[in-house]
Simulated assay, not measured.
Amino acid sequence: MGDGVLTVLVVDDSALMRRRIADLLVEAGFRVETAATGEEALARLPEVDPDVVTLDITMPGMDGLTCLARIMVEHPKPVVMVSALTGAGAGETLEALRLGAVEAVQKPAAGSIGRIGEELVETVRAAASSRPRRVRGLRERLRLARARIVGEDFVAPAPPPPSVAAAGEVEGVVLVGVSTGGPSTLEDILPLLPAGFPWPVVVAQHMPVAFTATLARRLDEMCALSVVEVERATVLEPGRICIARGGADVELARRGGRLQAVCVPSSPDRPWHPNADRLVTSAMRLLPPDRLVGVLLTGMGNDGAASMAELHARGGRTIAESEDSAVVFGMPQDLIRRGGAGVVLPSDRIAGQLTRWLPTAARRAGPASGRKD
């Protein structure tokens, strides 16, 4: 409305929940409009023209997923899904993130406003500066990305030869940090890694514990590589992508002479979990810099930036997602500001860069099929 105050359209069929969310946002300085149904929300969007929409997943009549899909096609806006964040609703919540929602946050129940309310306000504020994604079908996104990889329309400098790995040990590890907008961004990258990709991948995706197992299963169905959740000590080996378990942190450790991803209790002095800085720092204690690649993707805050900048300074390779594709540019932007990004690329070109840096098995295998044989 031209006065610098951000407007939020709160969509929920519960009058109590609409009032609770509206009170939190008004107190934080937002202008709030409300809608009780998906149909009402769609009708009011052109009139209200909100900076952000908060959207309940479970509503009678038009459900949240249907409403979200129509918003992203008809009137794209940053959308924050508000749900119970339980394991039972994990599939629906992840589908919302795939459809273009910026983030999903916990419903602020009575008596538990506290940190949940703060997180909702922080997420809405970050969403206001995010970039809504018009999500194509996965098949079309993969086709276009593979065309770019095959076309080799970008080339980064060749790295120096890596140090020799000890017998029986993996050659190196790719470390990925990602937060807001992560699930759909990971779909731009991981399904494009070919079956012969020579290094394991460990992903720290900021996410509650209820969702990471479902995320790992969905990615496993899409990828040529095996995708598993790190719920216990998991051996790192070529052909495996490890998704850190939500609500905890993940570190690399050497046990019985083998490199493993280990789930550890979340560190109270770090605000984001699973924590990317903690992952990268643990990896640098065990492997030389030339056997590590750090990839920092979309997300608010700066998790991963300090440790990956240090990795880059030591001679390791790093990639920051570019502003062109980042839903929220905070994390990769901080890495770039620190001078720690070796390469800056949109998400659908990152897999191609990784296969150029780690070429032997990848080139022998050819482009990823998007499924396991």
Rank of each mutant, 00 (worst) to 15 (best):
M1P: 11
G2W: 09
G2T: 08
G4M: 14
L6N: 02
V10N: 05
V10I: 09
A15H: 05
M17F: 11
L25K: 09
V26S: 07
V26W: 05
E27W: 05
F30D: 11
R31S: 04
R31D: 07
G38K: 09
E39K: 15
E40K: 02
L45D: 04
V48G: 00
P50C: 00
P50G: 01
D51M: 06
L55P: 15
D56K: 10
T58A: 13
T66M: 11
C67Q: 02
E74Y: 06
H75N: 13
H75C: 14
L85K: 06
G87P: 01
E92I: 11
T93K: 02
A96G: 15
R98S: 04
A104K: 04
A104V: 15
Q106D: 13
P108M: 03
P108V: 07
A110Y: 04
G114P: 12
E119N: 14
E119S: 08
V124D: 07
R125A: 14
R125C: 03
S129M: 08
S129V: 10
S130I: 12
R134S: 02
V135G: 10
R136E: 15
G137P: 00
L142I: 09
G151M: 06
F154E: 06
P157D: 10
P157S: 07
P160R: 15
P161D: 12
A165S: 15
A165G: 10
V170E: 08
V173R: 05
V174W: 15
L175E: 09
V178W: 05
S179M: 15
G181D: 02
P183W: 05
L192W: 14
P198L: 14
W199H: 10
P200R: 01
V203G: 10
Q205Y: 10
M207N: 03
V209H: 07
A213L: 12
L215K: 06
C223R: 14
C223N: 06
S226C: 03
V227Y: 04
V227C: 12
E229G: 08
R232T: 08
R232A: 14
A233L: 04
A233G: 15
T234D: 12
T234P: 10
V235S: 14
E237A: 15
G239W: 08
R240D: 08
I241T: 07
C242Q: 12
R245Q: 14
R245V: 04
R245E: 12
G246K: 11
G247A: 02
D249P: 10
G257L: 09
C263Y: 09
C263Q: 15
P265G: 10
D269K: 13
P271S: 05
P271L: 05
P274I: 00
N275E: 08
L279D: 01
V280E: 03
S282G: 07
M284C: 06
L287G: 10
P288K: 14
G294T: 04
L297D: 03
G299Q: 00
M300Y: 03
D303R: 01
D303Y: 03
A305K: 09
A305R: 04
A309P: 02
H312P: 02
G316F: 02
G316H: 03
G316W: 05
R317Q: 11
I319Q: 03
I319N: 00
A320H: 05
S322K: 04
M331Y: 00
P332W: 05
Q333G: 12
Q333P: 01
D334W: 10
D334P: 01
G342K: 06
L345W: 12
P346I: 11
R349M: 00
A351G: 01
A351T: 00
R356G: 14
A361S: 05
R364L: 13
R371S: 13
